[in-house]
Design a protein around this nucleic acid. Structure first.
Lengths: 152, 152
DNA sequence: GTCAAATTGTTTCCTAAGAAAACAAACAAT
DNA sequence: ATTGTTTGTTTTCTTAGGAAACAATTTGAC
């Protein structure tokens, strides 16, 4: 059981400290700020990184499909794809049968940039979370995915 | 154990899907949007609720101390306390020995509002997370606290 | 085949949340 | 008494996302 914190230990039932939402937010802020430090000022923003990762994983994905997969609005995706296109990491390709749709494909530079960023991010996250055992991290991700899969 | 998702199962090592940061963000968005629905349009915003909870728990806490405890900047706390004061839930009291400091105290209405909001929030969160067993929820909170306690 | 309805990418505007920098008032220390 | 620090505050900036509207296009009903 390691060494728990010595301070706010008593009076911990029904308080802020055991609200999942509160702890999620605090933990998210820590991890995301570390992410930004990792990729630096000019580096990919978290959501841009996520989009690139999915475009590499699912080449020729549609903007609508990507927005759905990211859980954001189509309108919000525009700026993200603009960013990636400006960096030369992604191109919007016309689709033969449907002239409304733009298929997103990574450029070679995009693939390289992604795999480099991915390495960096994974390594830094592992190091940030080195207080957690691999089992704990895996467990955590599993629980978070369970929350993500809640149907509301 | 249990029924995992059937879709994106293969190719899941080193991808976006097992990044803690990504899952944290997605899960946080779900829980915090549920929070807002729970307390409604006119209800306390998440951060305002958190502040009120701590003021009730630590009456006469200083604004600086509260900001520290919340993990935000002093400047950001001003609007939160303004909000609580406008609702009549909190008062800024002068402190005898130090005229810079404002001690935050809940009003009787503030105490009532807090305990009502707290009940509501706890109940809705429990219901939202009903897919998780109590052990899983407890486990999750423990892991999130571990992240919160990382010294960087 | 035509016309209404839906879809796609996009623009514009709005909100929430927090950070950073500066400032006056007050305090502490030497 | 001057210097430096702390407290609350204001102002400005950044990040992230949602909602509504729109033109271009496609689909579906009939």
């Amino acid at each position: 059981m390691s060494k728990p914190n010595t301070a706010l230990q008593r009076e911990d039932h029904g308080t802020l400290e055991d609200l999942v939402g509160y702890n999620l937010k605090r933990a998210y802020l820590i991890v995301s700020s570390d992410f930004r430090l990792t990729l630096g000022e000019e580096g990919l923003a978290p959501r841009v990184f996520s989009a690139l990762a999915l475009i590499v994983q699912f080449p020729l994905i549609t903007q609508s499909d990507l927005a759905r997969k990211l859980g954001i609005e189509r309108s919000g995706l525009v700026a993200i794809v603009d960013d990636l296109e400006a960096r030369g990491y992604v191109v919007r390709k016309p689709v033969p049968n449907d002239r409304r749709v733009r298929a997103l494909a990574p450029t070679p530079e995009g693939e390289v940039a992604h795999s480099q960023a991915n390495e960096t991010v994974m390594a830094h996250e592992a190091q940030l979370l080195s207080e957690l055992t691999p089992q704990e991290t895996e467990n955590l991700v599993g629980l978070l995915k369970k929350i993500r899969n809640i149907k509301r």
